[in-house]
């Protein structure tokens, strides 16, 4: 497993990939590439299920560049006789692993969401609107990225696994150079493509309250803000925030409807949302019929509490 890290901290995704690796079975070794990776490898060694944590220390490993990391992963994979090479299905793993797979002449499995055997996996296609079960060839090895949303993070081990420094003789290219990293923009994600959306309805009562109640929750969840037709018509927010049949039709992983009763027109806009949370004071509101989690009560208390504790 290739472990991602930044500023001395192992990425949260690693523990989830470990969980997927446990489902595959066998020994699990995590490797981190760094300039001095002992400490961060130590964090990987503390994850339950990890049998060994390796670190490859080279000056070239200061920044995560696929073209630089791939030859090292390939060298380790070949030398170590590994059956599987895994990484997280985030931008790090998606950038790196196909480069590794091609060099190993292996057809990669992207976004594993379930493990059936050492070679059989489920993965989403068509933006998750269909799921395929695939059978990968065992030889020379299986290369796969893991869909993080499909796995729980593995816990902390009682006793940390051993940490070992390793080296490779891989030739590293100089044709790819890191320039800079600008941290995530603070702007909210785009409503149409956001993986999380929080929406407010007429129950918020005013434009001021809409902002005051919805924005902290959106900030906390990293979510886009949407609204019901009623809220838009009442002037609480801009019309481009409207979710529903005549507004935007969205399919986020998480949708939180606050003070939205759930008119048919609104539901038409969210029926592809993976998980719907509804907070409403009316227990008979139709939104609860489609919600995965329903919470009845005063949104002016519950939403700020949610924002604080989430």
């Amino acid at each position: 497993m290739v472990g991602q890290h930044a500023e001395g901290k192992l990425d949260n995704g690693v523990a989830k990939v470990v969980c997927a690796a446990k489902a595959v079975g066998g020994d699990i070794e995590v490797v981190v590439f760094a300039t001095a990776g002992a400490a961060v490898a130590g964090q990987a060694a503390a994850i339950e299920g990890v049998t060994k944590a390796l670190h490859v220390d080279r000056a070239e490993n200061e920044h995560p560049l696929a073209a630089v990391l791939a030859p090292q992963v390939v060298a380790l994979a070949k030398a170590g006789g590994y059956t599987h090479v895994l990484a997280a299905g985030n931008t790090f793993g998606k950038d790196l692993l196909p480069r590794v797979a091609a060099l190993l002449d292996v057809q990669q499995v992207s976004d594993v969401m379930a493990v059936h055997s050492t070679t059989s996996f489920d993965r989403p296609i068509y933006a998750g609107n269909a799921i395929v079960t695939v059978e990968a060839m065992a030889a020379p090895c299986v290369v796969a990225t893991v869909r993080l949303a499909s796995f729980q993070a593995a816990g902390t081990a009682g006793a940390a696994a051993p940490v070992e420094a390793v080296s490779t003789d891989a030739q590293l290219p100089a044709h790819t150079r890191f320039v800079s990293l600008a941290a995530q923009k603070s702007e909210r994600p785009d409503l149409q493509s956001a993986t999380r959306v929080v929406s407010g309805g007429r129950a918020l009562g005013s434009a001021e309250k809409f902002k005051e109640v919805m924005e902290p929750l959106a900030d906390k969840l990293g979510a886009a803000i949407g609204a019901s037709r009623a809220a838009v018509d009442s002037g609480y927010c801009a019309s481009d925030m409207q979710v529903g049949q005549t507004g935007k039709i969205i399919a986020p992983e998480l949708y939180v409807a606050c003070g939205i009763s759930g008119a048919i027109q609104h539901l038409a806009g969210i029926k592809d949302a993976r998980t719907i949370v509804a907070i409403n004071k009316d227990p008979d509101a139709p939104i609860f019929e489609v919600a995965d989690f329903g919470l009845v009560g005063d949104l002016f208390q519950l939403v700020p509490e949610f924002a604080q504790k989430a």
Binding site: Q107, V109, S120, P124, I125, G128, N129, A130, I131, V132, T133, V134, E135, A136, M137, L254, T275, I276, V277, F288, V290, A291, D292, F293, G294, L295, V296, L302, E305, F306, K309, A310
Partner: peptide, 29 residues
């Protein structure tokens, strides 16, 4: 390459639950 064994629709939306508190909601999520 990969052998495609089968293609399925994603699991249908399972029946939702009513939670009583924000803590319960957060635990569920």
């Amino acid at each position: 390459g990969l052998k495609i064994v089968k293609t399925a629709s994603p699991a249908a939306r399972s029946k939702g639950v009513m939670v009583k508190t924000v803590d319960e909601l957060i635990a569920g999520l």
